[in-house]
Amino acid sequence: MSKAAFVKSFAMVSLVAVASCSTEAGSELDEGSFGNPTMNNILVETGQKSYAVDLAKRFAEETPSTINFAFNSSQLDDNARAALAIQAKWIAQFPEMKFKVYGHTDLVGSVAYNKALGLRRAQAAVNYIESQGISRSRLAAVVSYGKSQPLVDTNNPNRENRRTVTEVDGFLKNHPTVLNGKYAEVVFREYVASAAYQTELTGTGAAGNSQ
């Protein structure tokens, strides 16, 4: 190998090595729930990330975070409304937090139709939580996965797949507790299951229409 060829080869190897070492710290944490890698760096450095994850686990453990739907419907049944009421009661006691609702369908039908149906289901869930006195600004993000993330891999109608899932989405930036960095106080706050809603119920009917 000539000297020029050796130098060129060495330079290429060096570039690959530098590139492999320059992955942004925290980028492996970016799974769509807490922003991009740069934001994840900030969350990790300030402790917000771990606290938000802890609260997400608490919410999943202490509430029925998933509701289900009839075939080809975004109508909330009695069980769904009861579950969402419990979610709203929990959310009301943690005003520093914001949430996302993800809509899903079973595998019957086209991708486009099911994405729209998943969105209607998510909107129905958000509308009902809002009717329990929760500010819409804390439920601003509504996401539809349609039929792309089934729990049960079957092409037949399946109720488990027809669902919405409510999840913690992080801290509100401008809440006084958050501004003072008191994340631990939020995480370790006792959830009182019997607590009353912050406001009276504004409606008990289901939101969204059957299609």
Rank of each mutant, 00 (worst) to 15 (best):
K3W: 15
A4T: 03
A4M: 08
A4E: 11
A5F: 12
F10E: 14
S14W: 14
L15G: 12
A19I: 11
C21E: 03
T23W: 15
A25E: 06
L29A: 10
E31L: 01
S33E: 12
F34R: 08
F34V: 02
F34M: 10
N36I: 05
N36A: 08
P37L: 12
M39G: 11
M39T: 15
V44I: 01
G47Y: 02
S50T: 12
Y51A: 14
V53Q: 15
D54T: 11
K57N: 02
K57G: 01
E61N: 05
E62R: 07
T63C: 11
N68K: 11
N72R: 13
S73K: 12
D77S: 11
A80Y: 11
A80N: 07
A82E: 15
A83E: 05
L84W: 03
I86W: 09
Q87E: 06
K89F: 02
K89E: 10
W90L: 06
A92T: 05
Q93K: 01
Q93Y: 05
Q93L: 06
F94N: 08
F99E: 03
V101D: 08
Y102Q: 00
H104C: 02
V111S: 10
N114P: 01
A116Q: 08
L119Y: 10
R120G: 06
R120W: 10
A125G: 09
N127E: 13
N127A: 15
Y128L: 04
I129R: 04
S131Y: 02
S131Q: 03
Q132R: 11
Q132I: 00
Q132N: 03
G133F: 10
G133L: 10
G133Q: 09
I134A: 03
R136Y: 04
R138D: 06
L139M: 13
L139I: 03
V142Q: 05
G146H: 09
Q149Y: 00
P150N: 09
D153R: 08
R162C: 07
T166M: 05
H175Y: 13
P176I: 03
T177D: 13
Y183D: 09
A184H: 10
A184Y: 07
E185T: 06
V186E: 02
F188L: 07
R189A: 14
E190M: 12
A193H: 08
A196W: 01
Y197F: 15
Q198E: 13
Q198H: 00
T199A: 10
T199Y: 03
E200G: 09
E200D: 10
G205S: 09
G208N: 04
S210A: 14
